[in-house]
Design a protein around this nucleic acid. Sequence first.
DNA 1: ATCATATTGTGAAATAAATCACGACGTATC
DNA 2: GATACGTCGTGATTTATTTCACAATATGAT
Lengths: 210, 210
Amino acid sequence: MEQNQIPQATAKRLPLYYRFLNNLNHQGKKRVSSKELSEAVKVDSATIRRDFSYFGALGKKGYGYNVEYLLGFFRKTLDQDEVTEVALIGVGNLGTAFLHYNFMKNNNTKIVKAFDTNIEKVGTDIGGVPIFHIEELEENMKGVSVAILTVPANEAQTITDRLIDYGVSGILNFTPARITVPEKIRVHHIDLAVELQSLVYFLKHYPLDL
Amino acid sequence: MEQNQIPQATAKRLPLYYRFLNNLNHQGKKRVSSKELSEAVKVDSATIRRDFSYFGALGKKGYGYNVEYLLGFFRKTLDQDEVTEVALIGVGNLGTAFLHYNFMKNNNTKIVKAFDTNIEKVGTDIGGVPIFHIEELEENMKGVSVAILTVPANEAQTITDRLIDYGVSGILNFTPARITVPEKIRVHHIDLAVELQSLVYFLKHYPLDL
DNA sequence: ATCATATTGTGAAATAAATCACGACGTATC
DNA sequence: GATACGTCGTGATTTATTTCACAATATGAT
């Protein structure tokens, strides 16, 4: 579990930096300054320098950062060499979108199993991911410790309880339900309706600039 | 544009509160304490009280909050009576998921138009939303000031530029690209790969509790 | 009525994160 | 190699958000 002095806000930005560094590397760019990176990822350059500095002195004054070096560093830091296997629960429209989404491109995470109640889907695969029946969740979860939850809201808690009994340690919850879990389990909520509604709220109530 | 002393963090939670209050109301519950609500939405009760207090004294000591009153109050505050029309750009898997998603249920936002390049989709509708060709974006955007962007990353900036020229004021960007916009335009990024990757990072690097 | 209990609303404190601003130092040029 | 320039790394500051903790007060039971 190692050193944990990195602020959460920084940790959330790391995957973003990683992806953009990958892009730069593919473009053949050898160096990048915090200012350039700032324009690409839309994060203040001082924030980027501060973020990087938690990992030590990665850049050179007057030069910037060596793209390849930084990339190699982040690959290790983000455990890019070790693939995390993920299960997807609920193959509806949103779930299907994930199955088609190629997370692996710049990424260390891979959806390896999907589950649904619809008999017509069970036994098939989408985007190369086999679909099992939810009743057989436990038998087929082997080695998977992270789940993406894209089931109807009213089933969210029931499935969550089973995932936790099974031993999952992280859940990415796309349902509008706020699930209850033991404190050892980490849950990230992404609530699409709330995101849209809060954007609309900001537009109506906050000054147009800034 | 009115009073804007509400912290952004609070504003982001308002739609969430609203939805849960709606649920409670449907369940016939007449009163709710910050503690109960806290358990439901997973937000600290002191934070909830503080959030509500920005709008004045909405509760009663020793009693809690009257569900119906609070709901009515938020309906006005969140402009629930006035529907915001939204366009969806890019009818791929993720876009399709949105079209099937019934935002209107507890919500003042409605996807009224969709756009795609695929001729086979153009002219049809999904979830009651008509699909137009992206070439006819400008002709069909009438009255729409918010767009959900679910196109391939490499098209994100081009479409964004057109949306802005047209006069859109808010964009919910689901592409991995960080789009560049004038400062008057509000963009919310939701980066699915980053969300998954940062969950995995937290699991590996942060203490299991807290 | 009285009293025990519940729960708000909020000052004050704590925590977290972003930003400023600049000295130090490496690079590039002549 | 001296000089001008660019960019990092970071101490200090500012801003934002959460949390503590408790006086004030309404409720509900007897």
